[in-house]
Simulated scan of single mutants.
Amino acid sequence: MGLLTYSKGRTRVKICGLKTPADIDAAVSAGVDAVGFVFYPPSLRAVTPNIAASLISRLPAGIDAVGLLVNASDAEISAIRAVAPITLWQFHGDESAEECQRHASGQPWMKAARVGSQFAYDDFSLQYGQANAFLLDALVEGYGGGGIPFDWQGIPQEWISANAHRVVLSGGLNAHNVGEAIARLHPCAVDVSSGVEISKGVKDPALMREFIQAVRAADALSSS
């Protein structure tokens, strides 16, 4: 079905920063809808295009392979496209809407928002109105949310009601708080990385299972 297939009562799940065949197999077994590959060399979770290609070959049909980019050059994106069959692009840097459109080259894409106390939701959704999804992450130094949640209560109710069908919620999610996030916001999808790790960059199969089980339990509760 893929990450951005919105259906009420079923929150999609993306696990980001996978690096090994064991990571992929565990995520698939747990019931993931999308896996994310980090093409940002400073990150401990970064992979090369060739490694990503090998990992993507293990994915069953219907699971999105998400390419996470941070201010990538045309040459870097071309190198990824040459070998890795990415199905959805995630722009996590300072890319303009026009750059996102050009880099995605007709494929679906989402833009990450770094949400702080003064974040302008309406301005962001207007600026990136052509995005297939908005990924809401915490504002921290550098790029990525650093495993820190932001203030979900600060999201204007009118904005989330209008945009929930294309919101991917990220930022410090884990098996203990994802249910509250789903109950409050009803996003299209949730995105987790550090919340399913035993150390930075090292995924844990048990934590992946627990996270997705918590999502499904929240879905069941919201549907009852």
Rank of each mutant, 00 (worst) to 15 (best):
A113T: 04
S222R: 10
V70A: 06
F37K: 06
S73I: 09
S224T: 11
R216E: 12
V35C: 08
I77R: 14
V35N: 05
Y6F: 15
T87M: 07
C16W: 05
A112T: 03
P42R: 07
N71G: 10
A218D: 02
R209K: 15
S54P: 08
G129T: 05
Q118F: 00
F134Y: 12
D25I: 10
D122T: 00
P60D: 11
A65T: 02
H165V: 02
P85L: 06
A104V: 08
S199Y: 01
K200Y: 03
I148C: 14
E98T: 14
T48M: 09
G106D: 13
R114Q: 07
G171R: 03
E141Y: 02
R209F: 02
A97I: 03
G9H: 11
V83L: 14
A113W: 01
P108G: 11
S223D: 10
E95D: 08
D23L: 12
V215A: 05
E210D: 13
R216L: 03
D64Q: 09
A164S: 11
L68K: 06
F211V: 05
K14G: 06
G179I: 00
M1C: 08
A133C: 02
V38M: 12
G154C: 14
G106K: 11
P85C: 08
S78F: 01
L69P: 07
I80V: 15
V215N: 04
K8D: 15
I155A: 05
F37Q: 11
A164M: 04
N163V: 01
F134Q: 01
G201I: 06
P187S: 01
V83T: 15
R81C: 13
Q101N: 14
L44W: 03
S78K: 13
L69E: 10
S161L: 10
G9W: 05
G146C: 09
L126C: 03
A189Q: 07
A181S: 12
N71A: 09
P41E: 13
V215E: 04
P149C: 06
V38D: 06
N71P: 04
H186R: 15
V115Q: 08
G31R: 08
C188L: 14
R12L: 04
K200Q: 10
Q213N: 15
Q130D: 04
V28P: 00
I212R: 09
G17C: 10
V178P: 01
Y40K: 00
A79M: 08
P60A: 13
G144Q: 11
Q130F: 00
E76V: 05
G2Q: 15
F124V: 00
A79H: 10
